[in-house]
Computed example of a mutant assay.
Amino acid sequence: MSRVSLEGQVAVVTGGARGVGELLARKLSARGAKVALLGLEPELLKEVSGRLHTESDWWHVDVTDHEAMARVAGEVKERFGKVDVVVANAGVAAGGPFADSDPVAWRRVIEVNLIGGAVTGRAFLPVLTESRGYFLQIASLAAITPAPMMSAYCASKSGVEAFAHSLRAEVGHKGVGVGVGYLSWTDTDMVRGADQDDVMRELRQRLPWPSNRTYPLGPAVDRIVAGIERRSAHVYAQWWLRGMQSVRGYLPGVIATVGRREMRRFEPRLSGVRTGLVGAGGAADEQERTESDRATTA
Rank of each mutant, 00 (worst) to 15 (best):
A17E: 12
G121Y: 08
T120H: 03
W239D: 14
Y182V: 02
E130P: 00
P219S: 07
A11P: 02
N89R: 02
L24F: 07
Q205H: 14
N113G: 02
T296C: 12
V160H: 06
R294E: 15
M190A: 12
R230G: 04
V76I: 11
S49N: 06
R79C: 01
Y153C: 03
V10A: 01
V109R: 00
P103L: 13
G159N: 06
F135I: 06
V85I: 15
V86K: 04
L136K: 07
T214G: 03
A139Y: 07
R31N: 05
K77L: 06
H53Q: 14
E41I: 09
L52D: 03
V171I: 08
T296A: 15
P252L: 10
D102A: 07
A295E: 14
G133E: 04
R18W: 10
P42A: 10
T257P: 00
S211A: 15
R168I: 06
Y250P: 01
V83E: 01
L277Y: 09
E41H: 13
G117C: 13
Y134E: 09
A155L: 08
R265D: 13
E67V: 15
A17C: 04
G91I: 02
G172N: 11
A11G: 03
D187L: 12
A143W: 03
A11M: 01
V12C: 05
G281L: 04
A139Q: 04
Y182P: 00
V13A: 00
V273T: 02
L207Y: 14
L217C: 09
L251A: 13
S156T: 08
Y236C: 04
R231I: 08
A70H: 11
L203F: 15
L167W: 08
G117H: 11
